[in-house]
């Protein structure tokens, strides 16, 4: 049995010294039906950094990620307790509208999920939902976000083509552009490159590097090399608990916990 106190880890000052805390999580517990998926997790996620969540399948990292934009609200039987604040605003308060929250916290999913609509309509979906009707303004947003997602050059000639005609890697970048179009502050990524080939993966990783200047990024990944490459901070989850959290470089070169070392060196998982 692990010491419960270990779940209350915070990154060492050096990794966050220049970065204010964006998201604060305290004693977060998630049940699915009777099963406890996440056990009293507390951590601070700094602004304009990439924070990676790693751990074996079923360790709770995706569950944790989905707590940050309240996507678990839609899973029948899911129960969330504890506190999560973004810029000090509690997001699980009774008066918080999850719809408004998701405008601040965007999400990119494991499997690219473009709508069966045109490329333009995919990116413009979020702004339209939030009331933007002006075609010219929408056009600007679409171009800006497609450029941010490094997709503009490949699709600018065919914005009216169906998004389903794009390749897997292009679809995922389209989904990133679509998430950016609502101008979120935080972007959650749930294994965004796990279904992609190495070249497409490299593009997504490059993109993550670019995006952290403007956004706070939390990424779940199964791929430890990827975590090492893209993230500033890494949190290791196991069996629903946060085992270790710290600067990526330190965690990978000098893990503080034997469980972390076992996982990172591939002794299990």
């Amino acid at each position: 049995m692990l010491d419960p106190g270990l779940s209350r880890l915070r990154p060492t000052p050096s990794a966050t010294s220049e970065a204010p805390t964006k998201i604060t999580v305290r004693d977060l517990v998630v049940h699915y039906g009777g099963a406890r998926a996440l056990d009293s997790v507390s951590l601070d996620i700094p602004a304009h950094r990439v924070t990676a969540l790693i751990g074996p399948s079923g360790c709770g990292k995706s569950t944790f990620l989905r707590c940050l934009n309240r996507m678990n609200d839609h899973i029948p039987g899911a129960r969330v307790t504890g506190q999560v604040t973004i810029d000090g605003d509690p997001i699980y308060g009774a008066d918080v509208d999850p719809v408004a929250l998701r405008r601040r916290v965007g999400m990119v999913f494991q499997k690219s999920n473009p709508f069966p609509k045109s490329i333009f309509d995919n990116v413009a979906f979020g702004p339209r939902v939030h009331g933007e009707r002006d075609r010219a303004r929408l056009g600007e947003i679409v171009e800006r976000t497609l450029r941010q997602a490094a997709l503009w050059d490949e699709v600018q000639e065919r914005l009216d083509a169906s998004a389903l005609e794009l390749s897997g890697g292009q679809q995922q970048r389209l989904c990133i552009a679509r998430a950016l179009a609502v101008e979120p502050e935080v972007v959650l990524m749930d294994e965004p490159a796990s279904a992609l080939d190495p070249i497409a993966t490299a593009k997504i990783e490059e993109l993550i590097h670019e995006l952290k200047n403007a956004y706070t990024i939390v990424i779940v990944t199964h791929n430890m090399q990827q975590a090492a490459r893209v993230s500033d901070l890494t949190a290791y989850f196991y069996l629903g608990r946060l085992i270790e959290y710290g600067p990526t470089e330190r965690l990978f070169t000098n893990p503080g916990r034997p469980e972390t070392e076992d996982y990172i060196t591939g002794r299990f998982g």
Partner: peptide
């Protein structure tokens, strides 16, 4: 219709009915 499409719309801040 795959649930991933519903989630995509919700994650963009669309209310359920939208």
């Amino acid at each position: 219709v795959p649930d991933s499409l519903r989630e995509a719309a919700l994650a963009l801040g669309a209310p359920r009915w939208v």
